[in-house]
Design a binder for these strands. Sequence first.
DNA 1: GAAGTAATAAAACGAACGTTCAATTAATTC
DNA 2: GAATTAATTGAACGTTCGTTTTATTACTTC
Lengths: 216, 216
Amino acid sequence: MARTTGSDGEKTEAAVREAAVSLIARFGYEAMSMRQLAAEVGVQAAALYRYFPTKEDLLFTLMREHMEGLNEAWIAARPDAADPATRLAAYVENHIAFHIERRPSTHVSNMELRSLSHDRLTQILRMRTAYEKELRAILRDGAEVGAFSIEDIGLTAMALIQMMTGVIVWFRPGERLSMAEVTATYLSMTMRLVGAKIETYSAARPFGRAKDAVAF
Amino acid sequence: MARTTGSDGEKTEAAVREAAVSLIARFGYEAMSMRQLAAEVGVQAAALYRYFPTKEDLLFTLMREHMEGLNEAWIAARPDAADPATRLAAYVENHIAFHIERRPSTHVSNMELRSLSHDRLTQILRMRTAYEKELRAILRDGAEVGAFSIEDIGLTAMALIQMMTGVIVWFRPGERLSMAEVTATYLSMTMRLVGAKIETYSAARPFGRAKDAVAF
DNA sequence: GAAGTAATAAAACGAACGTTCAATTAATTC
DNA sequence: GAATTAATTGAACGTTCGTTTTATTACTTC
């Protein structure tokens, strides 16, 4: 046997990426074998090496594209001229939406960092730092103009990101809460956490508030 | 060769546990080989099987003991008759202290769940749920008596736990912030997050407040 | 000091791993 | 329709994996 009828390099590569994200998210990078991945795609293991020279190259590609997507999504959503509270609300909304939409990919990028070589780990961490820096800038601006009340910028930024990213651990679409409700509640918690003074960000929010919501 | 001079089963087993926690936290369960673990202990791989029948048994033992320790630490620290804010403060302090003290062990318990069999995963998740239930009870009590202002008990509990556990990702003893400062800031963020009305919990706090702290 | 037990080493097992190579067929180009 | 390129298979390579077996030595008991 050899080339199969209807085979297409682009489609196969896309199928490999998709299957790899799913398998690594479920079983872990080390636990996923190239043969298992190939079987999921419907191909022999050797065929994978036409698209990715090594297993680690595959992992790195998935992670890099995830981080690029996150940064690009934020740049597209970022309201540059707005007040700190509005910018913070946009950051929270973008972060939660992106992570819920790409849960498997987020799992891969958060859990498999230790399987990267030193150089590639550095590259991914640089992209992550750039993204977090955007949040710190918002918090700093807000603290300076008195819109927020924050003890420690860096610590608050980390706490917020951990809190928001944690959504993917328990959130399942179609369960008790909708994504809009979850986002509204996280927005409310975020604003209280940073000691936001007034609800100046409300106008920018595309989501309705949960039924039992209270003012923060 | 065979039994070595000075060999002691109890000491070897303890050394195996300690080395396993360290190696799994650093490289991951799948990436750690039994030979690598044995070398770290200074023993041949076959010797490990005197203490743990399989690799997965070893992982499960580490996780179970970690979760038992977490629940026991909370039971010992829990102030039963206090008001919700004081109880919440105790929960936060215990959680952060425990996780900073046992960072490698926490990494293992949080990251390697997918390597457990279904039954054992269920056992560990049951213990985790019991621990989280304690937090939800505090939040519910506080909301009922009006000490807290919370939109969604379950969601707030998850957000708080994710936020607090995230400490182990970036905190390093001896760096910019001391553990007492970090704990004080997290306490402050927690109280604002749950909309605590007054600082009734202050008396129970063993830590000084950070220099640039502001009232929540 | 002999007998019994505890703790290990050394070697081997089959299976699975990531990866490579040569052969083969499908699609495209001229 | 011949030549070329794209896509894949099937088989194999050497290595490493978790685990088992057997033998050997250290310690304990009497």
